[in-house]
Amino acid sequence: MNKTIRASVLIFRKDIKSELRTRYVINSLLMFVLVTISIIRFALGDEKTENEILTGLLWISIFFTTSNGLSRTFVKEEEKETSVALKLSSDSIPVFTGKLFFNLVLTFALNFLILILFILITDYTIKNLTGFLITIVLGNFGLVSASTIIAAIISKANSKGTLYPVLSFPVLLPLLITVINATKLASLGIDTEKLSGELMILVSYTIVITVASFMLFRFVWED
């Protein structure tokens, strides 16, 4: 196996094992998801709500859950003072790749849960399931790519909590506008072919952010 892939897999496996033992991220995020979904349920009451509004609420839940959890992957290494041992043992590329895949797994698992709960407690209807799922998957890829590099940058700062939303909002804004629009259109039953413009933007955004992240990470990690 190529040594970069082998090292990335090792770091990914280590992060999964650490998370399962400490529940550093999972427990707080599960609570966050439950509280957010409950608040949405109480706020909506029995009123019939339009899909446009529900789509916005769905992405608010996804965005805040993700931003709450993904920032912790690098912050934990800094807070526990383990990042130096990692730097002494690995090149920067496997570290970023391992963390990126860990965040992807975490995000997909949590967002699957959010989606199920959201559909169960609201009258959210999805008329074009294929287009909807493609949008959610691409949106998650973009969200994770951008959030992982921002998490690496803020882990070096003193005011980590406040810096994350300040940095992530402008970077994620193009993604959020596009993904919310595409999700709304898919849920209303617009054909997947007609969503191709939005989907292309999501694919392009993810590729650009991921490539830029790999180029930037070395400087963030080695500083």
């Binding site: 040594k3 650490s18 383990t82």
Partner: peptide
């Protein structure tokens, strides 16, 4: 003194993880 190994891993798991990371070949 200014770094730690992973508290949530065992001593053996820590050494194994870091040794494998530094290995340049399978």
């Amino acid at each position: 003194p200014y770094y730690n190994l992973y508290d949530e891993l065992t001593g053996s798991e820590n050494l194994r993880f870091f040794y494998e990371l530094k290995l340049q070949e399978n």
